[in-house]
Design a protein around this nucleic acid. Structure first.
Lengths: 212, 212, 212, 212
DNA sequence: GATGAATGAGCATTCATTCAT
DNA sequence: GATGAATGAATGCTCATTCAT
């Protein structure tokens, strides 16, 4: 149950909607879209199954609402950084950082809400919410590259690469998380640096460093 | 329907098994594992529903058969290149090339088998077959990096990045495919170079090149 | 259909559960466990197939619910008679009487519920509900014989015999039932006497009686 | 496999038919009619599934063939005893003895053929073959009673009782069987005496014996 | 006759969605 | 608005039976 401190009567419509969204986010993260049933969602709520349909027309609709919410949330995070005249390098750093913070947050939330039994190694990162976020980044990168980039570089490929790196590297990073908050912050920073450096300098940089 | 020139009785067991596998490969690529039903699969053959179970014990089993087949196929492709004392750079090039060739092949096959109506933009790359392949690469890269790599570099992150790049960049590449065979070969080569260079030198290389 | 005067929504959960149980009792009696399908059961109610699973997890579960219900019902009947210090003869009389009353009741119920088309000669007496009842009797008889019986007598054989007599003789008795309520009561009494006397005195008694 | 010493070509039609019947007898005894599949039967044979239908039109037909065979076999056993002018007492003894011998035989056969893993406590005694046998006995008893019996006695009830005793007592007897052949013979004799005495004298006889 | 792959009706069960209360 | 029982289409799977070889 997401919350039981208030009776259902007291709660505003918005609060119920939020409770359902929270539950859905959790369950989708655990089970994926297809495997999740509407019952799974409302079971994590103190609402009744029919109530779900007062807020969302269908399972698909809540999924998209979730994607939009996450994208918006992430977008807000992203927008805290200067967008005008930002260099690609800076944008990259900010975007990676924002993304890694975002998934760490999500991960913590799932851990917090999930029944302790759940194996979190299975938290999904290919959810639609993530896809929505990536579309946003994709647009951003392409915009920045268009203004700054060398004409040679294939911006679609580069964007795809950045997203691929973020996605896969992010998953590995999550497996390393401990309960230590400082440690987690350091992990995010380190992942951000790794990803940014990889894109900017490749690993030759690292090799060279060693060899000199 | 895969074929109707022979009666189902004439066809060898192997041929029917292959027909089911083909249909399954196609449908899984279109719909993903959960969404695909066994009925979807056999509907694409001229066999009856019960016949499916003469060949595979369950939906899960055919899925794994598919994953193994693909992994084996890809593995063979990968093994054509020298494995002993190969440099990381060379391995990377070969592996990317093998992967991109592989997905181009798969893509062509899906296009060939799919009823024309299907929107191929939705061909999925997160199928289990792909995951099997990526596990294989992951192991390879880690092995090579262990022997050659600088002690500084985080091999798990690097491997994840390489896989992320391959996956996302590969998807973009597929959208650019035309019917021209030569063009396709060039696409693969170009994607391979892009990915390899990105990992080795990053994009600074490209920027620098321009600025000098 | 069990009842159509009320809408299914008006009916209490308990009423619907009872309707399903009634239907199941009927169908199991007609067809036996294996042959009966869940569809057979709900087809005899005015409910939809999915509704079955709101009340019972599986075909097996409803079967066991039925067995328990019947055993409990019969147990209650049996417990109306004095259990302490009862002689074997008295126990036998009571138990036979209770059993015959029970199956007459069941039989009437099946006749009442069954669509008229059904051949009741096929009402089954080897249902699991009956087995549950027989286990109960078996235990009782063995307890009583243990305290009272001659050390010579094989209590397991005797118990088995009593149960065999009840079962087969009961089936024959059912074929003789008419609509006359008094007649039925007399039938039960007569069967009870027959069974009890057979076990106590055998038929020699009867033969002797005649010959003198 | 029932037999593999001969090729299927060499074997006569009759031999194949017999092999299928043997397998069926075994499997029906283990699983009951509904639960048994035709595949279960032919799997115990070295024949192919289609071959089944060269010998029997359906699962039902083989079941009935089995019932007839058993009934005939048992009938032969029963007919070895004098039928004319036999007393009820003698008939009873012979019939019980024949029945108990018959089920001991069946039981041994199932044990012999069954994979050793099987829990024989579950060998079914309510098979149709048994029912066929009981019909035969029923007729016999009624005939004899009609000529000899006291007009008072309810022959249908008495017959039913005898059958019930045979059936249930027989089941208990089977649970006591060991590998010792002499022991088994004694068991049969003892069961026969118990059943016969019960019907003739009841248990009072036993009690009295003790008390004097 | 023997074979065994193909068939498809049928089964238990699930689940998104509706709707009377 | 909230409730939760009812709904029934859809799913994975089984199995008696057919039939080309």
């Amino acid at each position: 149950m997401i919350s039981k401190t208030q009776s259902k009567r007291e709660r505003s419509k918005a609060a119920n909607r939020e409770a359902i969204l929270d539950a859905a986010r959790l369950v989708f993260a655990e089970l994926g879209y297809e495997t999740t049933t509407v019952r799974d969602i409302i079971r994590r709520t103190d609402l009744a199954s029919g109530t779900f349909y007062n807020y969302f027309k269908s399972k698909e609709e809540i999924f998209e609402a979730l994607a939009e919410t996450s994208a918006a949330e992430f977008g807000r995070l992203l927008r805290t950084l200067p967008r005008e005249n930002i260099s690609f390098e800076d944008y990259l750093k900010c975007a990676f950082s924002a993304y890694f913070h975002f998934i760490v947050e999500r991960h913590a939330e799932v851990l917090r809400l999930a029944a302790p039994k759940i194996h979190i190694s299975d938290v999904r990162s290919d959810t639609p919410e993530m896809n929505a976020i990536f579309q946003e980044i994709r647009k951003d990168i392409e915009t920045i590259l268009a203004s700054e980039g060398s004409p040679d570089i294939d911006t679609a490929y580069l964007t795809a690469s950045a997203i691929g790196i973020a996605r896969e590297l992010g998953d590995v990073m999550l497996t390393r998380i401990s309960n230590d908050q400082d440690q987690t912050e350091k992990l995010v920073e380190q992942a951000t640096d790794f990803a940014t450096n990889l894109i900017l300098c490749g690993i030759r940089h690292a090799f060279d460093e060693i060899r000199t």
